[in-house]
Each structure stands twice: as C-alpha cells, then as structure tokens.
C-alpha cells in the first residue's frame, strides 16, 4: 500500500542508475521503438491521406482501414508478428505502426479535405499547379489537424510500446512485465508511472507546435479568449 515507499525503492535501486536496467537506458529504448514506429506510420499514412483528402477519392479506404485497425488486438498482433518474423524489432514495430497509422491517415485526409474550397479554387485560378496548391495552400491549412493526429499517434504509441517487453525486448515495459513476474511491485508501479509521464510530456510538447501551425486567426485572437473550447481547425 505504501506506494511512495515503492517509488523510492524503485528510483533509488542501484540497478536503475546504470547498466541495461537503468531508467535512462529503458527510456531511450522505449523512445527508439516509438520513434521508429511513428516514422513508418507517417511515411505510410500521411502521403496516402493527403492524396485521399485532396482528390476526394478513396475516402472509404480511410473508413475501412481505421475501423479495422481499431479492432486489432495489439497483443494478438505482437504474437502473430513474432510467429511470422521471429523475436526482433519487427515484431514490435508491426503492431505499433498499425496503431499509429490510422489517426495519421484520418488527420491527413480530413485536414487536407477541410481546406476552404474557395481558397483552393482561387489558388488554381490565379495559376498555381495542383502540386503547388497542395504544398502552399492545403498543407498549411491541414497542419494543425495533422499535428493533432500525430500527437494522438505519439501518445498511443508511447503507452503501447510496453508490449515490447512481452516478447523479450527492452523499453519501459520491462519494469512492468518483470515486476509482475517477480512480484516486484515497486518496479511495476515505477515503470507504469514512467510511461504515463512520458506520454504526458509528449502531449504537452505538441501544444506549442499546434499553436504555431494554427491559422493566424486562431493564433492571434487566442489571448482574448478565456478558454479554448475545441482544437484549432
């Protein structure tokens, strides 16, 4: 019950200060998994989403993929990946990418689709090519939505990357899984807390980015509002 004691035990144990089980090392492992997974997810989902959003075609792909991905049990996917690819980074990356890609796909498609049609029409009409319209009009308009999607994907990936430990790989999941296996509750609680802190930190890190990417209207009138009621569009 004395969880404060547990945390003290966890954070002060010599094994947490250096060596493979050190906190810094585990966090680094965790972040590498997340970073790799997010990179793949961005590469796969964003171009597809942008294309779907710009052309207005293939919206069903978004619906189908996101629906299917949401139904996938992550642990099941890890197991499957291990069976197919053996124990290794791939086994962890597959489920993490599957988790991170759908919100990115939706954000890219919706963000680009949400560009003011009048502005798009004017841009084409004064002589921008489709590529230029996409790069100079649609992407800036989509940026806040896209970043919000990336934030969702990041937070979910950080929280879920603990599964790496199930297949014997590193990351913060080690503390949780090993702690449970050896009834080392300080490790379980400490590991869980670190995952939460990391996720919250990522969440906070995105706030200024999203604000910077917001349209000038939202950015410049922000201070006059007492409270933001919804995500900037």
């Amino acid at each position: 019950m004395n969880w404060l004691g547990w945390l003290t035990t966890f954070f002060t144990a010599p094994a947490r200060q250096s060596g493979p089980d050190a906190i810094a090392h585990r966090i680094a492992e965790h972040l590498v998994f997340c970073g790799e997974a997010l990179l793949w997810a961005v590469v796969l989902a964003v171009p597809l989403g942008v294309l779907i959003g710009y052309t207005g075609r293939g919206a069903f792909v978004v619906t189908a993929l996101t629906g299917a991905a949401r139904a996938l049990p992550t642990l099941g996917l890890v197991t499957l990946a291990v069976l197919l690819a053996g124990v290794g980074d791939t086994a962890v990356l597959v489920p993490l990418v599957a988790l991170a890609a759908p919100p990115l796909l939706v954000a890219a498609a919706e963000g680009v689709r949400g560009t003011d049609p009048v502005v798009r029409d004017a841009a084409l009409g004064i002589g921008l090519t489709h590529r230029q319209v996409l790069a100079r009009v649609c992407l800036p308009a989509a940026a806040p939505v896209l970043l919000a999607g990336l934030r969702t994907a990041t937070v979910q990936t950080i929280a879920t990357a603990t599964v790496a430990a199930y297949v014997g790989l590193g990351g913060l999941g080690r503390y949780v899984v090993d702690g449970l296996a050896t009834k080392d509750y300080p490790a379980t609680v400490g590991g869980a807390l670190l995952v939460v802190l990391l996720a919250v930190a990522a969440q906070l890190l995105f706030a200024p980015l999203i604000r910077r990417a917001s349209p000038p209207q939202a950015r410049l009138t922000r201070r006059t509002r007492t409270r933001r009621t919804k995500e900037p569009r």
């Binding site: 004017a122 009409g125 002589g127």
Partner: peptide, 20 residues
C-alpha cells in the same frame, strides 16, 4: 492551364485570399 492563368487576372466573390 497554370501558365495561361498566370497571365489572366482572376477575382472571385469571396476574394479567396490565402488565410495563412
């Protein structure tokens, strides 16, 4: 098309300015 349009001024009802 794009080259043609750069040589023709185009004004529309809601101005259609780039908001950013």
């Amino acid at each position: 098309a794009a080259r043609l349009r750069r040589g023709i001024g185009y004004v529309i009802q809601q101005a259609g300015l780039f908001p950013h």
